[in-house]
Nucleic acid binder design. Sequence first.
DNA 1: GCTTGACCTGTGTCTAAGACCTATGTTTTA
DNA 2: TAAAACATAGGTCTTAGACACAGGTCAAGC
Lengths: 145, 145
Amino acid sequence: MNSEVYSKKISFYQVKELADAAHVTTDAVRFYTKKRLLKPVRNKTNNYQMYSHADLIRLKFIGKAKILGYTLNEIKQIIIASEKSESPCPLVRDIIKKRIEKNKNQFNEAMVLQKRMEKALRQWENMDDSIPVGDSICHLIESIT
Amino acid sequence: MNSEVYSKKISFYQVKELADAAHVTTDAVRFYTKKRLLKPVRNKTNNYQMYSHADLIRLKFIGKAKILGYTLNEIKQIIIASEKSESPCPLVRDIIKKRIEKNKNQFNEAMVLQKRMEKALRQWENMDDSIPVGDSICHLIESIT
DNA sequence: GCTTGACCTGTGTCTAAGACCTATGTTTTA
DNA sequence: TAAAACATAGGTCTTAGACACAGGTCAAGC
């Protein structure tokens, strides 16, 4: 049995119930709560957190936003905007545009790194595994220009 | 004037001298020192760290290894191997091979994310910036399947 | 009534590689 | 002698939680 209260037509969830409903861990729920992305109320008799249906919707929203590449801080800004009855959409569009651009740069950087590593590995094919001499550490890496 | 001691044919470097010589920050030098990648000795009169020429070579080595994609922990393992008069080369080759593979996977994941973001942005072109209703937060993100 | 298991609480540490800041001590230079 | 430039240790901050620990709560079965 869960902790839904039908008489009041208000459902509350405990941490694990909420986590399971959104297919995330309880650690994630607690983490989001600490960051104030979720806003449970306290059950004063046992000090437990009680999550509302709105929290469940928020939690699912967080999941979708995350797979689109939004960070938790960005998601928080979006939620805050929506709570002020502002449209968060311009913010949402703006963030994703910037992230797409940023990712392109990181992509290129990662590509450069990958090429560099592959080139090094090829060059090392003709070099032996010698024991370092003097202050040298590894002639393979030290041979890189 | 720096703190090189020519009479003993041993040069010592202060943090900033070493950092400048390897084109890194003093914070980086201190960080590597804390991680025991560099091993200065203490000047007992003023409690300063004194770095040797071997430290400078290590510091330059760290720089080269880093642009090849090695992490500091991996670099530490390599240095430890070389200090035991073992050849660190098999380790060096092994790490880079694994990282090349890992990068390929991360590359693919990043590509999937990028495509997902671009697709979302295209789909949002035909949607308006409405104000959230009820428990909804942002219909743009919530429209993602 | 008691135990057991499953849940809850807060707190802390760990991940990578430093950047930045504070407060304080030392050395060099004008 | 005072200021500038160096040094020290220590702390916090960045991502998104995972994992561990110690102890409180609650339902079920015996």
